[in-house]
Amino acid sequence: MDQINPYRTELGREARAGLRDIAPAAIAAIPIGLLFGAVAAGKGMTTAEVTLMSTLVFAGGAQFAAIETWIHPAPILTLAFATFLINVRHVLMGASLSPKMKLSRTQELLAYFFLTDESWALAERRALDRPVTGAYWAAMAGMLFANWVVSTTLGAVLGSFLGDPARLGADFAFTALFIGLIAGFGRSRVTLVTVGTSAAVAALVHHFIGAPWHVACGAIAGIAAAYLAAPKEARA
């Protein structure tokens, strides 16, 4: 009788809490995943390639950026560098979360493969009033992972039937999605200076030098602008 075993009950309760907490984020990610798959298919990626990318990379922002600038053959170093820039925030997230989730080193190396903005935010919130267990993390992060792989794959299958994405304005969907994501970083003075500088430098570099240099040049100019625009005194 598993139900009477208190350890099993505890695991089940933690797993259910994880699923409950991640549900809104997972549901919101479904249409985004479908869109990713469809546009990736429109750019010439096969369904197998989309599934493989979602499974191994599992990072929405980096995948969107890769697809937006996708060309054949894929520019490996450029993609790796853009991926690094977009995902380097994980270092801070992992550093902050790891003391709050008690796992062995082996468990950590597995668990942090599934680190995302959403699962990190939920785990940090839960850590405010109770310890974050492996069962909670596994249910939450695993659910988001399965959800992403399935929805992007489905999007790729459906997208290959849709034909030219520009006909439906779908080529603009990523631009609109990115504008929505950028707005999520707020309207502080530093953010506005960052965004303005990055946009101007990227557009100029793209016009006068060409892709894919605009991504790195614009991003570095924006980061430098944020450094200069921020107050000197630590406000953390």
């Binding site: 853009a82 977009i86 950028i182 960052t194 946009a199 990227a202 557009a203």
Partner: peptide
């Protein structure tokens, strides 16, 4: 500033 700077640079053109 890294994430917004990268996202903007990708779509600016």
């Amino acid at each position: 500033a890294i994430p917004p700077a990268v996202l903007v640079a990708v779509i600016a053109p």
